[in-house]
C-alpha cells in the first residue's frame, strides 16, 4: 500500500525519472522545457488535459529539435463544448492519458519547467500522475507571468494572459491556438524576459 512512498513498487520509467535528478551534472547547461497544456477547463479537479506541447531552451536559444507534443484520448465523458469536440476529432493520433504521461515524463527528465500560469498545469499533471498511483512532479518550475510581474514590479494579482504578454513583448502569435504553438510563443517571451531580468 505504501510502496510508492519508498519507491519500491514504482514502474521503471518513474525510477529513471527520479534518478535523473540525483545524477544531474552541475556543469551542464540548464535545460529548460517550455510547455503548455490544452485543457477541458480551468478546474484542476474536474477538468483534464487534452494535449501537451513542449520545446527545449538551452543557452539562450530555443532548440527546435528538442520538441515534444502529445494528444490525449477521451475519458469517455461527453464534451459539452463543441470546439473541444472538434479539436478531438482532428487528432487521430491521440493516446491514452497513462501512455501520454509516461512519454512526457520520459521527455522532460530533470529539466526546469517553464510556462504561463504553470501552477494549474502542473497541478493537473500531478492529478494525472496520482491516477497512476505516482508521486508529484519533482521539476523546478518558472512562471513567465511571475517573471513579468517581477520585471515590472507588479503585485501578484495583476494577471496577464499569454496573448497579452505576447503583445507586450512583441511576439507574433500563431492564429490557431495549439499546445505546441503556445509553448513556442511562451518560449520566445521567456527568452526576452530572461534577458531583461538578467537571469543566468
Amino acid at each position: 500500500m505504501l510502496d510508492w512512498l519508498t519507491g519500491k513498487g514504482d514502474p521503471d520509467f518513474w525510477k529513471k525519472y527520479s534518478e535523473s535528478f540525483d545524477k544531474a551534472d552541475a556543469n551542464a547547461p540548464v535545460r529548460y522545457i517550455v510547455f503548455d497544456c490544452e485543457k477541458t477547463g480551468q478546474d484542476w479537479k474536474e477538468d483534464h488535459i487534452l494535449s501537451i506541447g513542449c520545446v527545449g531552451v538551452e543557452n539562450d536559444a530555443i532548440k527546435v529539435g528538442d520538441f515534444f507534443e502529445v494528444f490525449i484520448a477521451d475519458h469517455k465523458e461527453k464534451h459539452e463544448n463543441e470546439a473541444v469536440e472538434k479539436l478531438f476529432k482532428v487528432n487521430t493520433d491521440a493516446i491514452p492519458e497513462t501512455e501520454a504521461m509516461i512519454k512526457f515524463i520520459g521527455f522532460i527528465k530533470n529539466a526546469t519547467l517553464v510556462g504561463h500560469s504553470t501552477n494549474l498545469d502542473i497541478e493537473m499533471i500531478n492529478q494525472a500522475l496520482k491516477r497512476m498511483n505516482l508521486g508529484k512532479l519533482k521539476n523546478e518550475a518558472i512562471d513567465i507571468n511571475v517573471m513579468h510581474q517581477r520585471l515590472k514590479n507588479l503585485s501578484e494579482d495583476q494577471y496577464h494572459t499569454l496573448d497579452q504578454l505576447c503583445d507586450i513583448y512583441k511576439v507574433k502569435k500563431n492564429s490557431r491556438s495549439t499546445a505546441s504553438g503556445d509553448a513556442y510563443s511562451s518560449a520566445l517571451v521567456f527568452l526576452k524576459l530572461r534577458k531583461k531580468l538578467k537571469m543566468k
Binding site: D60, I62, K63, V64, L191
Partner: peptide, 14 residues
Amino acid sequence: IAEHIKVVYLEKNQ
C-alpha cells in the same frame, strides 16, 4: 532543416 534550428533572441545592441 528547421528541426535543427536554434531560435535566438537578441536584445537591442547585443
